[in-house]
């Protein structure tokens, strides 16, 4: 299906999102031939399910996540990048160059590889979660919230995402229970203040969800001391880096983040650069991901330039 594309490039970028698309913008603009594998399931990354971004510079009235991603994507196209909506299935990293094999079998060869595969939702790992996924258990309030109009729901977590989800769902659902295992929420002050204005949100601190109950759909959750009858469970307990593609091939931390030589984006493999949520357990903002995508592109371009020079001299 995608076999008509050139398969040899200066650089391959794996992963779409602010990091990957920004890397493609910079590499394209630097005159490098660049292909970006956007992913076959959810191109655009985590921002595609973020309806409103209020802190991306340059958008005083806020920006929609999907609209912002579409803008950076079109910018990458305009800068000459080739975009392919397919997952990367495997990588072969060699001294001479790197190869990325896509899920459709197409092989992409490049001297530089930029990894920007982001992070995926962490699971609770409790009884009922997998069995009832899509049957009331959800990782995306903005996607699935409308199915729970007027129904009671639980949001699990205490960070920005959990509080944003609770605020969003409070406009749709009946009662919203925010359940967090620690004594205080980690979410930013502005979000906690917003949460406090929602009359139909109850916060349960120092509380864990022990099991999700229901046969063909969610009917409730079991907490430490009590059960709550709810129709939906929205899990927002954090993210794990999506590094399985390069596990064992590049150095990663215990948490699975790809290790880079800060402040650069260089991994331990020459010619392989990493950026975005894949390397960042701390900041995880659209703007920091875009910034690190820029860094990765500049590092990759410098790497290519150094080799161009060596080749010219030889």
């Amino acid at each position: 299906m995608h076999g008509t594309h050139l398969t040899r490039y200066d650089a391959v970028v794996v992963g779409s999102g602010p990091a990957g698309y920004t890397a493609a913008v910079y590499l394209g603009r630097a005159g490098r031939s660049v292909v970006l594998l956007e992913g076959g399931t959810a191109p655009g990354g985590a921002l595609m399910t973020t309806p409103e971004i209020e802190n991306y510079p340059g958008f005083p009235d806020g920006a929609g996540g999907p609209e912002l991603m579409d803008s950076i994507r079109r910018q990458a196209l305009r800068c000459g990048a080739t975009l392919v909506p397919v997952d990367a299935a495997s990588v072969e990293l060699t001294g001479a160059g790197h190869r990325v094999v896509a899920a459709d079998g197409t092989a992409y060869d490049a001297r530089a590889l930029v990894l920007a595969t982001g992070a995926e939702h962490r699971r609770l790992g409790i009884d009922g979660e997998d069995r009832l996924a899509g049957r009331g258990v959800s990782w995306c309030g903005t996607c699935d919230g409308p199915f729970f109009a007027g129904r009671d729901v639980v949001v699990v977590g205490g960070g920005d995402t959990a509080v944003e989800e609770a605020c969003f769902l409070s406009r749709i659902a009946g009662q919203v229970h925010l359940v967090h295992r620690s004594a205080r929420l980690r979410a930013s002050r502005v979000l906690q203040d917003r949460l406090a204005t929602r009359a139909n949100v109850t916060v349960h601190l120092d509380t864990r969800v022990r099991a999700i109950e229901g046969t063909d759909r969610v009917t409730g959750v079991r907490l430490d001391q009590r059960s709550l009858p709810v129709a939906g469970v929205f899990v927002a307990i954090g993210h794990d880096p999506r590094s399985a593609l390069v596990a064992g091939a590049v150095e990663t931390t215990a948490s699975g983040h790809v290790v880079v030589e800060h402040p650069s984006s260089r991994t331990n493999v020459p010619g392989v650069f990493a950026c975005g949520d894949l390397v960042d357990p701390t900041y995880r903002q659209a703007i920091t991901a875009a910034g690190s995508g820029c860094v990765a592109a500049l590092d990759a371009d410098a790497y290519l330039a150094a080799r161009d020079t060596t080749r010219d001299a030889a």
Partner: peptide, 25 residues
């Protein structure tokens, strides 16, 4: 209760469902 969702029908009955985004493959 979650999107996107896919149901496969054969001979008038649901034989398989998928919840969440899936690739063409």
């Amino acid at each position: 209760l979650s999107l996107p969702a896919v149901a496969f029908y054969r001979d008038g009955a649901v034989v398989r469902t998928l919840a969440g985004p899936r690739s063409a493959e």
